[in-house]
Design a protein around this nucleic acid. Structure first.
Lengths: 186, 186
DNA sequence: TCCCCATCTTGTCAATGGCAAGATAGGCTC
DNA sequence: GAGCCTATCTTGCCATTGACAAGATGGGGA
C-alpha cells in the first residue's frame, strides 16, 4: 500500500454514499470511512476539513448529478420528472443529504453553483407547463410549477422512505411514470 | 429540585423536538437533553432505553399528532392536504423523524398503531378522489391516490427544506392552499 | 540537486452513547 | 403506622468519535 492513496477523495465520497445509503446520514463515521479506505483516521480531514465538509462535498456532487440527469431528459416535463425520481432512487444518499440543508454548508460556492445549474434545468422543464400554452396570472403559474415539482419530489421521498403501498410494484421508475402521467394542473 | 422530576419523559420529548427543529436529528444529544432538563446524564435511558428509543417515541407521537390533525380536517381532500402541511410545518422535528425510518424502530407497536391510524385517516380523505366520483381501474385509482399524497408530502418537505421560491410568501398554510387547490388528477 | 508543499500519520483531548451498580422516595400491604 | 417494593434517578466507567496539533513522507518543480 503506497503512502499516497492516489484517489482518496473519490474513494471516501463513494464509501460515504454507500454508508449513508445503508444507515442514514447520522451513521456516517469519518473513522469508519478511513478504515474502509485503508488510511489513518485523520486522513479524511485533509480533503474535507471536517464531517460537515464531507457532507457538503456530497451535496455538491448530488446537485451536479441531478443537473446531469435533468439535462439528459431534455425539456419534456414528464421525462424530467421521471429522471428526478430515478436520480433520487439510484442515489438515495446524495438525495437525503441534499434536501437536509442543516447537514451541510448550503452556502458553499460549489454547492450553490451546482444547485443553480439543477434549478435552471428544472425551470426549463417546468416552462413546458401547462402543455397547451395557456398561462394564467403569475401567481397561478408559480403555484402550478410548485405543484408539479412537489409531486415529483414527494413521490421520490415517499418511495425512498418505504411509505408507499406495495401495490405500486418494485420498479420505482415505472411506478413514477404511471403516477406522474396521471397528474395535471387545471 | 426534587429527586423525582415528575414529568421527565414529556420534558425530554419536548426538548428533543426543539433541539431537532433547530439542528436536525443528527444533532440530538441525550446528555444535552439531560442537562436542559436538569437531570443526570443517564436519566433519559430509563424512559427511552437508548437514543433510538427516544426517536421511536418521537415518531409515534408524530403519527398520533398527524392522525389528530387529519381527523380534525374531516374527509375533505383539500382540507386534509392543508392539515398535513400545517402539521409538517408546525412540528418539523416530528415530521423529519417520521419519514426517516432508519432513525428509529419503525416496527415498534406504538409506532405502527399510530401510523395505521394516520394511514386510515389519509385513506378516508383520498376516498373523495376523484371529486366527481368516476373511478377508473384499480391501478389508475392507486396512481391517483399516490399522486395526491405525493403533492402534499412533497410540498411540505420542500417548504421545510427551504427549497421553494420566496415568491410563495411566508405563510405555508396559505401557500399550500393555493398550490393544492390547483391540483387535479385526470 | 534541492527544496517546497500536498498528502498522510501519530498522538491527544473533550464529548457522546451505553452499561453497571447503587441511592432515593413514593406508594402499597399488612 | 411500619416496612417493603419498585419506579425513578445518580454516580462511575468504558469504547468510540470528531477535531486539532505536530511530525513524517515523497512527488514535482525551480
Amino acid at each position: 500500500m503506497p503512502y499516497h492513496h492516489g484517489d482518496l477523495r473519490r474513494a471516501l465520497l463513494a464509501a460515504a454514499a454507500e454508508m449513508i445509503e445503508r444507515d442514514g446520514p447520522a451513521a456516517l463515521s469519518l473513522r469508519e470511512l478511513a478504515r474502509r479506505a485503508g488510511v489513518s483516521h485523520a486522513a479524511p480531514a485533509h480533503h474535507f476539513k471536517d464531517r460537515t465538509g464531507l457532507l457538503t462535498a456530497l451535496a455538491a456532487e448530488g446537485y451536479e448529478l441531478l443537473a446531469d440527469a435533468l439535462e439528459a431528459a431534455g425539456d419534456d416535463l414528464l421525462e424530467s420528472g421521471v429522471a428526478y425520481v430515478r436520480f433520487a432512487v439510484e442515489r438515495p444518499a446524495h438525495f437525503a443529504v441534499m434536501f437536509q440543508p442543516g447537514l451541510y454548508r448550503a452556502d458553499d460556492p460549489l454547492v450553490t453553483a451546482a444547485r443553480d445549474r439543477a434549478d435552471a434545468r428544472l425551470g426549463a422543464a417546468l416552462a413546458a407547463l401547462p402543455p397547451d400554452g395557456r398561462a394564467g396570472s403569475a401567481e397561478e403559474r408559480e403555484s402550478a410549477e410548485v405543484a408539479a415539482w412537489s409531486v415529483v419530489h414527494g413521490f421520490a421521498a415517499l418511495w425512498i422512505g418505504g411509505a408507499l403501498p406495495p401495490e405500486l410494484g418494485d420498479d420505482p421508475v415505472a411506478a413514477a411514470r404511471a403516477v406522474l402521467s396521471r397528474f395535471s394542473v387545471s
